[in-house]
Nucleic acid binder design. Structure first.
Lengths: 221, 221
DNA sequence: ATTAGTATTTTGAGTAATCAAAATCAAGCC
DNA sequence: GGCTTGATTTTGATTACTCAAAATACTAAT
């Protein structure tokens, strides 16, 4: 069985990999993301390569094998189902579930996961809108793009908030920009670095930086 | 923070200690209970002693300090609340919760534990009838004695089943001897090694060995 | 083509937990 | 006392993970 450490490495690798598809992941990036010194990552990636979870090109970087990707998706499934469970069943706020899930994701058994999945009605996204892989490790297709890339006048539905910082999430909450809500983009002003949104009678302004982690799809209401 | 291993050692120490109060616990006993070789226990108990969790008398054995006992009770609380949660909320059978709780007990945070406790209505016993320490580490007083020590004619209420073996628990279930149920002890025959119980119109026979792990209190109905 | 700067790898060491097997200890028994 | 037995401790290794710091390789610039 994979240790928690191994699971965290492949999980991190997976998220980096989807951020920049097709590229090798630099070990230094991994080191800072996982908060260990670079040398540690080098040795660890060697072991992961021996275990068949990653392909390692010394000095260039590494990428997940299909086995590594499968493991990553499994961990992600556990993480996201646990997050949703904490919110739906235990009354957690979406801003505080990440830490807790970070621990639980390594110990929930397949049996427990199946019960949670069933109880929640086989959900396809966690509280942040992140897609939940199914038991076979398949991700529901999602075609959302960053709010920051939308143009003035668009009507959007917020699909996903790609940021785990509790303060950020509470801010999103207070502004009513949670996944599932619909808004009109009054104005996207990259020069000023702000976006103006409207929904109902309310108007809000968010910064471009924040809008980068808010993923939206077109809304036609 | 205590590692899972440390938590398991003090937990085991605690259960041995309540089984034979006042006695030092032999390291060999611990070794077989924890399924490690004796030498491992010796070194581990030394470190636990350095950490102030146990008192270690070389060649004689060891016992928990009050700090060690507090930690053990904390772990026990997590374990038992998780077990009850799995049964009540996730539809687990009481025979299958132990394994799962064994892992989860090391990662549930205080916050999560509090939510579970609240959701379950601050219960005082887990599905096996084992008392749940409160947040301050105090155990609800329980004065149950083994069914095997009862005499013919007694009316008893089953308080607790002190055995985690799934097969044993399923047997108990099938015989209707779960915690909370009431029965008349028709006959306790130590020679034959059997006990005959009656409740309603049904009669069952259990062995002395099994009756040792069934704890009961007097019932007056 | 040398150099400066950055990223990566190597080396040596440490912590936590474990095992196998040899050494030691403590009784109890003629 | 000497011997056997059983438990305990010690010793030397191993696995998994990590760090600090030195060594090395690559990139890009002068």
């Amino acid at each position: 069985m994979a240790t928690s450490t191994v699971e965290n490495y492949v999980k991190q690798l997976y998220t980096e990999q989807t951020r920049t598809p097709g590229h090798l992941i630099q070990l230094g990036k991994l080191a800072s993301a996982l908060d260990v010194v670079p040398g540690t990552v080098t040795t660890m990636i060697r072991t992961l390569a021996d275990a068949g979870l990653v392909i390692y090109e010394p000095r260039n970087g590494c990428s997940l094998t299909s086995a590594g990707e499968a493991l990553a998706l499994h961990v992600l499934r556990r993480h996201r189902l646990v997050e949703l469970f904490l919110v739906k069943v235990l009354g957690y706020d979406w801003s505080e579930v990440h830490e807790e899930a970070e621990e639980l994701e390594h110990v929930v058994s397949d049996k427990l996961l199946e019960r949670i999945d069933e109880l929640l009605g086989r959900p396809s996204a966690d509280p942040h809108g992140d897609p939940i892989p199914n038991a076979q490790g398949q991700l529901p297709r999602q075609s959302a793009r960053p709010l920051s890339q939308c143009v003035s006048g668009e009507r959007v539905r917020i699909e996903r908030v790609n940021n785990q910082d509790p303060q950020f999430l509470r801010m999103i909450d207070e502004m009513g920009l949670t996944p599932g809500t619909r808004h009109s983009l009054i104005r996207n002003d990259p020069i000023a670095g702000t976006l103006q949104l409207e929904s109902g009678d309310q108007t809000r302004v968010v910064g471009t930086k924040a809008a980068e982690s808010i993923l939206v799809s077109p809304s036609m209401d």
